[in-house]
Amino acid sequence: MVPTGSGSARPTTHNGEHYVDGARVIEYLPSSLNALPSSRYYLWLMAPALILLAAITLYPFFWLIWMSLQNVGAGPETEFVGFKNYIRLWADDKFWTGWVLLFKYSFFCLLFEITIGVFLAVVLNGHRFENILITIFLMPMMMAPAIAGLVWYYLFNSTFGWYHWLFQSLGILGETSIIGSTETAMAGIVIVDIWQWTPLITLITLAGMKRVPRDQLEANMVDGASAVRNFISITLPNIYPFLLIAIMLRFMDNFRFIDVIMRLTGGGPAEVTKVLPVYLFDVSFVFFKLGRGSAIALTLLIVTIIFGKLLVKVFENPASKRIDQGN
């Protein structure tokens, strides 16, 4: 069937032999297919991890759904109440305040962390002591948030806290500790978050800055741009994907961790720092209303999942890959 170049004339097509652009093409399908190879090897490799993961994540997830439809009374019995918990949530002020405070908290943390973090990165980039300095600056991130909360509680304390003494001496505060007043408590917890996590922003920004293509900067300089111009028009657009990742990560982490808030204010004073996860903790582990707690937990998880989808989109196109491909 295959021509072997003996030179005989073959001006017509036959038996499904078609030609496209002067080359032979095949339009028909194979008569039978071979059996597919078994992928058992890979499935066995994945199974243990996936089974364990399913057990400790999927099962609890369904448990949450089921439990959120229950009312947990004084005794061990639970009573099915349908969507009552959710309806109560809708009318629950503290629930909605919890969301508002959570976003407010995240917003302020991010605002300062990005500004200071990026600025620090600009200052450190190419600095003589860059490596040593950044290693020192990383130390707060290594500390357990709960411990950080304790240390700063000690620092903010109105009786013996050195930082409170500083604030008083500078005239910023009066007698009440920063975390003791409803006006300033939020500032207090934001300060601790900034202290711990700004270096992460700096690290990420530095990683991005090092990947900025040199030639873009040089071309811009030849065109007559100053250093500031260079930064704004070349560096910033190139590190923008990195910053995006940093923002999303920190945002998600503010949902996850309440260790610092628990140590510093416990959600007070007068619940001005009761962000939603803290409220959830109270409902579930202080008042033991597991049914309502499950409902709150579910709403938190759903929002997490939505953000997760966004994050995965960004992850599947890692910042480094995008910058190497010219964004």
Binding site: V2, P3, T4, G7, G22, A23, R24, V25, I26
Partner: peptide, 21 residues
């Protein structure tokens, strides 16, 4: 495109190509 066009010695392919491609 996945289809064998011609199978022969270099001479055959060069001097007697079976199709335009």
């Amino acid at each position: 495109n996945g289809v064998l066009q011609q199978f022969g010695t270099p001479q055959e392919i060069y001097n007697h190509p079976v199709n335009e491609w």
